[in-house]
């Protein structure tokens, strides 16, 4: 369980990235932090593994204040996936995945063997093991990133816009893959994105942030869609523009569903 207790972050130049956030994230589920740039979502995420220390308040993992844990040790126990994978360009795929286990002192051979298994888990062909990151496609790099995040079998997986840099088709594939993995592995996932569709697709729970690091709404996708907290949320999730409004229409005796522009979205089953 991850708890944010009254955390606030003000950078030395005076900008406030996060404004007094209280949040408790349920274990073994995906929580998505969503907001536009400058909403402090990444800062909030990075407080969990102490890449950023809060100016006020505390972050607790299983009732331990992370400030009391050595940051290096903490980071080695938490999976971290970032945009473009953040892979080390001078190491082969298998060594990239094995990085953290080796840092923790695991023998190289064992770590590599485990890395190969993880490649299966994330749907990467083992023949790619000896390639360098630059030889992979964007989607493959991202899968390596996920495998690396899972390498020490952490309870917590932090994902910072991991699918932001790949094209829409590959992104959907990767999202499906993540949901499948989550069904098997049941990690506590904190996922940051600026894409509301992605947030609703992946999140068991979605936290919407506004510029300046203020939480404006927090709930399941269904709750948020049913009752946007305010105009900002409504606008942000596209409810006002009718993007998410579907209507029934009768065509040739069959009920179909159309969107706000009258374009068919699907067939309604009774």
């Amino acid at each position: 369980m991850i708890e944010f207790r009254g955390v606030r972050k003000q950078f030395p130049d005076g900008t406030v990235a996060v404004e007094r956030v209280d949040l408790t994230l349920a274990p073994r589920s995906i929580t998505v932090l969503v907001g536009s740039s400058g909403s402090g979502k990444t800062t909030l995420l990075r407080m969990v593994n102490r890449m950023v220390d809060p100016s006020e308040g505390q972050v607790r993992i299983d009732d331990v204040d992370v400030a009391s844990v050595d940051p290096v040790k903490l980071r080695r126990s938490i999976g971290y996936v970032m945009q473009n994978g953040g892979l080390l360009p001078h190491r082969r795929v298998v060594d990239n995945i094995a990085t953290v286990p080796v840092l923790r002192g695991e023998p190289k051979r064992a770590a590599r063997a485990r890395a190969l298994e993880l490649m299966d888990t994330v749907g990467l062909d083992r023949s790619l093991a000896d390639k360098y990151p630059s030889q992979l496609s964007g989607g493959q790099q991202q899968r390596v990133g996920v495998a690396r995040g899972l390498a020490v079998d952490p309870n917590i997986l932090l994902m910072d816009e991991p699918f932001g840099a790949v094209d829409p088709i590959v992104r959907t594939e990767l999202q499906d893959e993540l949901l499948r993995l989550q069904r098997d592995l049941a990690k506590t996932v904190v996922f940051v994105t600026h894409d509301v569709d992605e947030a609703f697709r992946l999140g068991d729970r979605v936290v919407i942030l506004r510029a300046g690091g203020v939480v404006v709404q927090d709930g399941t996708p269904a709750e948020i869609l049913a009752a946007p907290a305010d105009e900002f949320v409504g606008d942000f999730i596209g409810a006002d523009r009718g993007r998410r409004v579907l209507r029934r229409a009768n065509v040739g005796g069959r009920e179909i569903v159309v969107d706000a522009d009258g374009r068919p979205a699907g067939v309604l089953e009774s």
Partner: peptide
């Protein structure tokens, strides 16, 4: 050396010394 790469190395739990020796030095 790309700050993203260094950031990733730190996020994985490399110490500053390890970042210098294993990431920044070879690259």
């Amino acid at each position: 050396v790309s700050r993203t790469t260094v950031d990733a190395a730190r996020a994985m739990g490399m110490t500053e010394g390890q970042i210098v020796l294993r990431v920044e030095a070879p690259l």
